Simulated scan of single mutants.
Amino acid sequence: MDLRAELAPPMVEPSRLAEVAAGIERIGELIRGGGGSGAVEAALADFRAATGHDYPIGAFVEYHGSRTLAEFALEAARPAWPRVADITRAELVEIVRRILAGDAEPDWYLLVLTVNVRHPAVSDLIFGRSAEADGPLSAGDDLLGVAEAIVDEASAHRPIVL
């Protein structure tokens, strides 16, 4: 199934990626170099205004433990909250199927899913599968059926009203 443009990973111009990467490095250098809390806070405020993302300070000095600068910059250059008001069940199923299948851009699809369903731990429904209880996924599995079950469970979630 093809996804409409609002759900697909947006392309980011190389110049924008370079600009965001430079901002990440600058903030990291300010933090590591003791640039003063005022300089760090000003750089963070500028970065937040330019990207819409509200990363904690630690993200700028610890990102290299789990991703590259290019991956961090790509995430930061894309929308922080890709909410699609009229997303359909079929689109959600396709997004989950792509995540399960290991298609390109799983981080983007997981963000879109997380933003567009109410379940507070939808990623646990995907990645918290128990190999003993659910069985491991393999190439022959019906990924569509598994994706449908995950979307149904995520969609059935209702927050507790206090």
Rank of each mutant, 00 (worst) to 15 (best):
A39Q: 07
L125R: 00
T68W: 02
V12S: 05
L44N: 07
H157P: 00
A22C: 07
R16G: 02
T114Q: 10
V40A: 08
P159H: 15
D107S: 14
L100C: 01
A21N: 04
L74E: 12
Y109C: 05
F47R: 06
L137F: 08
P136Q: 13
I27T: 02
L7T: 05
I27F: 07
S37A: 14
H53S: 08
Y63T: 02
D141G: 04
G38Q: 12
A49F: 10
A43R: 06
D46M: 11
L74H: 09
E41Y: 11
R89Q: 05
G38D: 13
A21C: 06
H64C: 11
T68G: 10
I95N: 02
G102L: 05
A76G: 08
G145E: 03
L144V: 14
Y55F: 15
I87C: 08
E19F: 14
T51E: 01
E91Y: 04
G58S: 09
N116M: 01
L143Y: 01
R118S: 12
S37Q: 15
A139F: 13
R16Q: 13
I31Y: 04
L74M: 11
A59I: 09
G36K: 09
P82Q: 06
L144T: 15
G58L: 11
R32Y: 10
F60P: 06
V20H: 06
S130Q: 01
R129P: 02
A73K: 04
E105Y: 15
I57C: 12
A131E: 12
V96N: 04
R67F: 11
P56S: 08
P82F: 00
A156Y: 02
G23Y: 07
G52I: 03
V161D: 13
S123C: 10
I95F: 08
E75W: 12
H157L: 10
G38M: 09
G102A: 04
A90F: 03
L30D: 06
T51D: 02
A70H: 10
S138D: 15
L17N: 09
L143D: 10
R97G: 11
A139N: 11
E132L: 13
P159R: 15
A22T: 09
S123T: 14
A133W: 11
G145T: 06
D141V: 10
A70R: 13
R78H: 08
G35H: 05
V122K: 04
D2N: 13
P10V: 07
A39M: 05
L162Q: 13
L100F: 02
I31P: 03
N116S: 08
R98K: 07
S15L: 14
A104E: 13
S15T: 14
N116W: 10
R129K: 06
P14Q: 11
R98A: 00
I27E: 01
T68K: 10
A147L: 05
A154I: 05
F72K: 06
V84E: 05
H119D: 06
E62I: 12
A121M: 08
L110A: 15
P120G: 03
P159E: 15
R26W: 05
E153F: 07
S15P: 02
A104D: 13
A121K: 12
L162I: 12
A131Q: 12
D46T: 14
V20K: 02
G33F: 07
L162F: 13
P120C: 07
R158F: 02
W108A: 02
D54R: 14
Y109N: 08
S66Y: 13
P159G: 15
L44F: 04
R158P: 00
I27M: 03
V96Q: 07
G145L: 04
A59K: 12
R78P: 03
L113G: 05
A101V: 03
